[in-house]
Design a binder for these strands. Structure first.
Lengths: 198, 198
DNA sequence: GTCTATACATTGATAGAC
DNA sequence: GTCTATCAATGTATAGAC
């Protein structure tokens, strides 16, 4: 009957998941990660971007890793929502391509991949959500294009790889070969708009 | 006749470019960037990896940005050397594919892209060398495959994008769709080995 | 829920002795 | 060329008042 209802390994209070202030910290973390990059994703810089005190961040998140984890989960949730919206669009394949070609989403995805590569504590969550999203895209492409899963998997790999590279290079002002690369995707996907490059 | 041979805006001494100790710092910076990522690319961690004193780093490089710039230049020089070697190989296209699929090279390229995205002072050098390398690959592929420059540019974009994504995902233990994506590249390149995934 | 105050490690960088 | 000593700024994180 000892310690009934008492937190055991928790010394500090924590804010609730539904809190709006908590969401502001996640918003700020997303903006910092997208605009300034992983090395700038620090408690002080996130708090500054949110217009809140640094110490308040630790009321809502036990550690910085917890904040990053919350950010990763929210990015994935929103991506899933946008994926469902794309499937419901008049031209789902074109909408899926647009989703993958969104510069802000691609920048975030790139930074999150970087986190997965070097931060073990967060890697599993990122890998899990990436695999889930990939599988959903493959299934959708197979259905929409009427091809088998293997063919769809190859097409998705190619389209995602190409769109990521084009977006990240475009952000650097490097556009050589983009038009030509897209021509190949278009030859495969058939129904995509021409002349697109970002 | 004033200030002949005297440094004007330089308050601190600097080591020579040819120095072996300088090279050790660049080696260490490369290892840290590849293995630990950009946030760990600090003067102290680089010096620790090199087995040298942190302050000695500032004898060879005015700032950390100078060290990163020197690293970027050296990575590019070595890549050019490996590119020339690939062209001289018995099967140049296969050798070029292997060069682009080298995990250690791809990891470095990914981190360097991240630097280019967020550090203006270094971006120009990275973009310049990337454009140069891309142009050389396109020219080589056009010649080796007997296709025009535009077709070659598209193939290079696709192959580079796909190899980068496959390498970076493999490092995370994510291999879904890799086999199928490579099957498409192989259909285009024809002479590449089958079943490769790294 | 938010604040002040604080502890303590690490950061980039410099000065000057040897 | 390498060393010791040092700096202000920033990093994560905590304690406790309000």
């Amino acid at each position: 009957m000892d310690n009934v209802g008492a937190p055991v390994a928790q010394t500090r209070r924590l804010g609730l998941e539904g809190s709006q202030t908590r969401a502001r910290f996640i918003d700020a973390a997303e903006a910092v990660l997208r605009d300034e990059g992983l090395p700038s994703l620090t408690a002080r810089q996130v708090a500054a971007k949110a217009g809140l005190k640094t110490q308040l961040l630790y009321y809502y998140f036990r550690t910085m890793d917890d904040l990053v984890l919350a950010l990763v989960r929210r990015v994935n949730e929103r991506r899933m929502e946008r994926f469902e919206e794309a499937l419901a669009a008049p031209e789902p394949l074109r909408a899926l391509w647009a989703l993958n070609s969104d510069p802000s989403g691609a920048a975030l995805a790139s930074e999150i991949t970087s986190i997965a590569t070097h931060r073990e504590a967060i890697r599993a969550e990122i890998v899990r959500s990436a695999a889930q999203f990939r599988a959903m895209q493959v299934e959708a492409v197979a259905r929409l294009m009427g091809v088998d899963t293997e063919k769809a998997a190859g097409l998705v790999m190619m389209a995602v790889a190409l769109s990521r590279m084009i977006v990240s290079e475009s952000a650097l002002g490097l556009t050589d070969g983009h038009k030509e690369g897209l021509a190949i995707v278009e030859a495969f996907l058939g129904c995509l708009p021409h002349g697109r490059d970002g």
